[in-house]
Design a protein around this nucleic acid. Structure first.
Lengths: 154, 154, 154, 154
DNA sequence: TTTT
DNA sequence: TTTT
């Protein structure tokens, strides 16, 4: 009965986050993420295959997404599969699957346009804290994103 | 462009595998897997939430599933999200998401009724070998599974 | 700078958990977990390879481990790699690596001896709650572990 | 007996790959990868914690690493934990743990200086093909990686 | 609809 | 030291 339902994605956003601020005070962000794999077919031709994922983020995560993510952003995502089922007007059973994001991390060098290397760290950003307002700076990486730190260990 | 699309599941099969042997010689198995999470709601009541996943296995993997998996079997699954999109009769865009299984492992302790603990090991069972016929014994675990138990180990 | 450090293991405990109750009130459990992979070598002989992992659990997780896990228990583990570095008496740099467990799930059928299907669910058991005392029953699965529930969905 | 031993990392290389071409024809690359997590301590101060991982890649993977990875490169890694055990001169049992890389993906946005986004795709680069020589271009992504960027982006 |  |  114990279960594990885990999704790990690295890809790029297809468009800017769509964020809704609910009357309840909750915030929801919807993202579309492309994961592309490339391989050679039997004829040696390069084939590219893109899968589009619908991501849903809540509250603190949603706010960070709203502030830092943009169309094209590359992110690492950890979450779980969550599907809605309902009956349509014709009485057919319908199912729609999305990824409930539990944490995400911005990828790319610190020199990229939006700042970078930010992380919605599981320790500080995941569910239990989801209701907390997020600081203006990137959580758990924050502070020095936009500052020049020349003493990086690399 | 580099992408990662990875799913990890642990759950139980909702029914026996449905296996089709195609004219091409390929074999496809479809499984439904339940992953259950339980938590306490705000009132301290235990709530259980089950997500049903549609799994698809091919060739060698499908044959192992056909032979060893049954309704109720607990398995560890690694795969990727794969969705089909099409237009229905009303011209609406439709999307159906399933998990393409890349490897799976049977779970269960030696003390449990079902014995078992076979593995469709990535090294021997994953895509590159998917076209190879599988031996009657459980791959990469084999040995004593086939020893006269006509009643399946589960 | 954003980083991901994630470990996923399924294996069996080499011995009973070793649990220490610290003066601070913290509880630490140390487990050894074997993950075995089997493959055929070039000669077609079956080869088995076992890796032993040192796991460390804290507080709530440690208590659950103490209560429910035993030598031979099969578990799913999610955690991160954590290494200690120091200098030994000869002045050599030394490093020891272990897995800091963030959540784990007991595997095996409902009929197995120890009860089963328990889960130290991330939502209820992970870091943020780590200091909370755990109920005698298995968290987030609890209650009905030892009771006959014939209406299981499988 | 069925086991799972999986590691997923996202981090930056601490130095250029160290590559050895063995007499046997095999190629080994050793990398050091830093995964950094940041969090706020009880006093609200930001704390940063870096874990260094020793990675080992073989053959095709090693060659790709040699050609494309440099100190500071950000990569996604999938692999498994592998430890060596031996006795030192004093007769003490020693153990050293490293990550055997099964696949890796270069990260970085299109806006970052080095371009990039190559992938050692599991489908084309993982174990079963490890002995195959790699093309000069980045497998399943290629292109603009090699364009003379001597000033590292970090 | 992203990215290369 | 586990498990099969």
């Amino acid at each position: 009965m114990a279960g594990v339902n885990k999704v790990i994605l690295v890809g790029n956003l297809g468009k800017d986050p769509e964020v809704r601020h609910l009357e309840s005070g909750s915030v929801v962000a919807n993202l579309t993420l492309a994961t592309t794999e490339a391989y050679k077919d039997r004829n040696g031709n390069r084939v590219e295959n893109t899968e589009w994922h619908d991501l849903e983020l809540w509250d603190g995560q949603a706010k960070v997404a709203e502030q830092y993510l943009r169309k094209g952003s590359q992110i690492f995502v950890e979450g779980k599969i969550k599907s809605d089922t309902w009956q349509d007007e014709q009485g057919n059973n319908r199912k729609r699957t999305k990824i409930r994001v539990l944490s995400f991390t911005m990828l790319g060098s610190k020199n990229s346009e939006m700042g970078a290397g930010g992380s919605s760290n599981p320790n500080t950003m995941s569910q239990p804290n989801a209701g907390n307002p997020q600081p203006a700076s990137m959580p758990s990486s924050g502070g020095n994103i936009e500052e020049g730190d020349d003493d990086l260990p690399f």
